[in-house]
Design a protein around this nucleic acid. Structure first.
Lengths: 362, 362
DNA sequence: CTGAAAGCGCTAACAT
DNA sequence: ATGTTAGCGCTTTCAG
């Protein structure tokens, strides 16, 4: 107990502390702490006295010290691949809202589709002692899962439903959703169908969608043509360029399944500028149902994903698990095909008529 | 996957601490700490021994305790109004990248255009002891500025350049940028010009753009018509609806300045669906230069804003200020008008010809 | 190059 | 209803 250096021990701006507030209001630090958290257990009189001092100094308690002492950080983390695609934005916004409501602060990490970067973000969030983590997809080094468990942090996977991965998941099923989209095209008589999706080596959601595409074709007796499958980044121009290449093919597709709306809009523009009429000459199905899908011409048929609901439920599940100290339960969400004007019967189709919007999942 | 609880003081999962690592590797906690931060001052031999134990336990140091002891949180915060508009997304992504690079973690706050919510976020971030803050716009309660100063946190304002607010600012000037857009229309002979922008009571950027619009018209001898001014939320449909109302006016506008591309796309669609041809019947200038601006038909003339550069520079400025313990310096960025195909001469215009892309700012 | 020891600012038993 | 006290897990002088 040295009496040397009172306020602001080492150096640095002498920001006010509980001790100072306690001294000035003539109570103990414990009482100040109580006023600031569970103010109902404190008498109205002392509460008012303390708050006056607090306000006078613009005192904000040191949350890190508080977290250290209480062993609860009141923080959760979310890691998404990009913030640029508004589909992640709406999910993240929902997460934020629910977490805030429950008294949690959210750390947002953007991995930019890099596994190394994601690992680094997870490490940082663990260091920041988040109580829970919302992750995108399930594919990551086993070591990372170990690290999360060893550090006692709960997590939930989003954007990829899988009932055999062993981790808690709150998501729709990319495989089922894509099958629905592809079957819509096949049902319209299309047999020659192209695919554009994200890079399946960096993105297990893209992988699911691609596998679903190939399997669904096969199950209808159609052999997927590798020359009609493109994996690209999520940019309008990438979708556009891939489409251009497909249209140049000696046997061009009569329909495209494009596993995200950004690339799909690019594809749609490319088709239109190439003089094709949609859906008379070529049909297009997207994925995500971004707001823009209704604002292109023709309006885009696409798969609607419950991104906000997913964010909300994932956060609720996570926080409930943290509070109850119980294992998290998985939830499968459903998607639906929104049939608009970018899909129609194939030329020379044997079967005719189009399906209406239909549900999948549970 | 059960957690065996080791020695844990009160309760809770016995997560490993420095003390345990120190014990197992036969060194002091000080040495473990050195290995984990400035490993170069430790002998290769002990370093290796310590790291072996660290890895075996998947040990992640308690960053909050570290921050408390070192009095540096290594965190900065950014508060944006929404994550849904990709113009903020690209800025935020740049902030993240630079901060990460410099060893800082970023807290992202979404205020949803609510001053109360923003105040709450600032309070939480202060509590989390961020070392710096990146804010959107300059309009907020004086008390908040006081609070930031009293708590010794540095901050920089973005998205609004103003050299008389007294705070450090890294931004372009909304007023100048808008004037450039409006003068483009006036230069094409338009005299009857409508405006759609965000709500100027919640958004000082929208206010600047609106004032600039009105002032620029007046300076060319045109009286702004209140019936041709709409303040709306940032949704396609809002832009569309406002446009519909303007087109119904007994004296409809021949040109629209729409102070963001989201509403502008909505406006463009509405005009097209109303049977107007763009730019023959009506000209449209947007603001932001979102990727979508090139993907609508006709391509949108709009103001390009340096959102990534702003994010990058704001972060660099902030971190430099934190490191040097020096006041932050303001930076004015420039914008440019990207002339595409949605603007053309007014019908019956006296003057003809259109201007090319031109710069503003510094 | 390494260790001992004193806190960082707060919370939560446990008392009163 | 309020005070006393013992840490939370780490970093950082200061010695050696």
């Amino acid at each position: 107990m040295g009496f040397k250096r009172l306020r602001s021990s080492r150096r640095g701006p002498g920001v006010i502390t509980v001790r100072e507030i306690a001294r000035e209001s003539g109570v103990s630090t414990a009482t100040v702490s109580r006023v600031l958290s569970r103010s109902e257990v404190v008498s109205e009189h002392t509460r008012a006295r303390v708050m006056a001092v607090v306000n006078r100094h613009h005192y904000v308690p040191h949350g890190l010290a508080g977290s250290l002492a209480s062993r609860r950080s009141r923080q959760i983390g979310i890691i998404i691949p990009t913030i640029a695609n508004s589909i992640y934005a709406s999910c993240t916004q929902a997460v934020n809202r629910v977490a805030q409501q429950a008294g949690y602060t959210v750390l947002v990490g953007i991995s930019e589709f890099s596994p190394e970067y994601e690992a680094e973000l997870i490490r940082r969030f663990l260091e920041r002692r988040v109580e829970g983590l919302i992750l995108t997809g399930v594919a990551r080094a086993h070591e990372l899962y170990q690290k999360m468990e060893h550090n006692g942090v709960r997590f939930v996977i989003t954007w990829k439903y899988s009932n055999d991965c062993g981790w808690p998941v709150v998501s729709f099923d990319n495989y089922k959703a894509s099958a629905m989209a592809v079957e819509h095209l096949i049902g319209l008589g299309h047999r020659r169908i192209g695919l554009i999706c994200g890079r399946s080596d960096l993105n297990d959601r893209a992988l699911d969608r691609r596998r679903s595409f190939e399997d669904t074709l096969r199950s209808h007796g159609i052999a997927p043509d590798p020359e009609l499958i493109f994996e690209r980044d999520f940019e309008f121009d990438e979708g556009r360029d891939a489409t251009r290449r497909m249209l140049r093919h000696k046997l061009p597709p009569t329909a495209l399944f494009i596993a995200n709306d950004i690339q799909a809009v690019g594809a749609l523009i490319e088709c239109r500028e190439s003089g094709l009429s949609i859906p008379a000459d070529i049909s297009i199905v997207g994925f995500d149902d971004l707001p823009i899908a209704q604002y292109v011409n023709p309006q885009l048929t696409t798969v609607r994903v419950p991104s906000e609901e997913m964010g909300r439920l994932a956060t609720e599940t996570l926080i409930a698990g943290i509070r109850r100290r119980a294992p998290l339960k998985s939830i499968e969400l459903s998607t639906s095909l929104i049939v608009r004007n970018s899909t129609g019967p194939a030329k020379n189709a044997r079967r005719r008529g189009s399906k209406r919007a239909q549900g999948s999942g549970k």
